[in-house]
Design a protein around this nucleic acid. Structure first.
Lengths: 209, 209
DNA sequence: AAGATATTGTTGCAATTGCAACTTTTTTGA
DNA sequence: TCAAAAAAGTTGCAATTGCAACAATATCTT
């Protein structure tokens, strides 16, 4: 996964932040940062920490839209958070850099050759986001819980090049992610275990096929 | 929805296409264009026509990943089509412009002031794609067919600012899009009709809530 | 270390959904 | 224009899933 400042020196990074008129905010763990920022035209860059973008619908169903680790990018113009149903929650202490979107493409930026690298990184991050979404859609379009689980495991396994998977999500969160009932999912995991498709030890899963 | 050449004159558009070393291809209706192009580092721009990106899994389940109309952008680097399970099918006669991704960020491009506009358009298209995917995920994470339908209708209705919806997808395609069984979906539509939530006349739907 | 809180694991039962097998209607293309 | 193909519409039945209500573990937090 690409980083916004990949292949850019610390000195040039500071230069970029300066002419982007970026501001830096610090947040404690487990707080909403939705209301602290005017997101209409800003994007956020997580320099340190970990946050989740979640969605709560009228039924109280919770969906994790996105998990953002260190060096991830997110924001309204760049991923439509302009909806009151979304919330952004820090899961760790977080250092956030806010950038006004319109500043990204000011013509004067072009005078700096390293700015091309910055834009390339930005395009690559957006591309990675689309890929992520496509993977999620791939999973969600499976009709059975079993197929959703297998697709999820398959994607992770392929990504890491190993049949041994370590779950970063809790099982409750996984059920949310797959958009299925948690206990039905647990039941299906048991079936997969009983039928010899997988082996599990708490959050370690081995694919046996 | 933004276009790659918005706010760029025809003359400058041709200039851009020249230094991007773009090539143009023409396709008839209902053919796969997956194999005609080396997609590993190219993006495609649909100047004229209409294509669908679909996915066929091992069960034979078909999923429409994306529908691309005139002036849309798609491609491997920009949305991970590097998977043999995908196919791209023209649904109309199509004029396709192929651009090598690496050419997009050559430093010499910066000498042209209109190039900034081009990059801005590109960023906005990618952003729109992410938004689209988010909407789809929003729909797919609903647990019942009814809620999926209502979410879908709600999004379209909001987008057009009207309670009157015209379906561009056929009902079979809609079922694929929602990842549900077609006849179960038809049954649920009937229920919604009977319970007075919607009124339908073939592909025209009116929301009554 | 202990109480509080969150997560995991399990089950029965009802509701929803998928599937198959049709008929009817609409669209397509030679 | 007319036959063929595709899409829409229906239904019964079986399978899957969601839901509720637990008990058992694991994990915070003070």
């Amino acid at each position: 996964m690409s980083n916004l400042f990949d292949n850019i020196s610390e000195k040039n990074k500071l230069k970029i932040l300066r002419f982007l008129e970026a501001s830096t905010l610090y947040f404690p763990k487990n707080v909403s940062i939705m209301s602290s920022v005017k997101w209409d035209n800003a994007i956020g860059f997580i320099e340190k920490g970990y946050v989740q973008i979640i969605r709560l619908d009228y039924n109280g169903n919770k969906t994790i839209i996105e998990e953002l680790e260190e060096n991830s990018l997110f924001g309204s113009t760049l991923s439509s958070l302009n909806n009151y149903e979304y919330d952004i929650i820090t899961k760790e202490e977080t250092k956030l850099i806010i950038i006004e979107y319109d500043n990204i493409l000011k013509e004067t930026n072009n005078h700096y050759s390293f700015y091309n690298t910055f834009i390339r990184n930005l395009l690559e991050i957006l591309n990675a986001k689309i890929t992520e979404r496509n993977e999620r859609i791939q999973i969600l379009t499976k009709k059975s819980i079993r197929d959703k689980l297998l697709e999820y495991f398959g994607i992770i396994s392929k990504r890491n090049g190993s049949k041994h998977i370590y779950l970063t999500l809790s099982y409750s969160e996984l059920a949310d992610y797959l958009a299925v009932n948690r206990s039905a999912m647990m039941r299906e995991l048991k079936n997969l275990r009983d039928e010899g498709f997988i082996k599990t030890t708490s959050k370690r899963i081995t694919l046996l096929y």
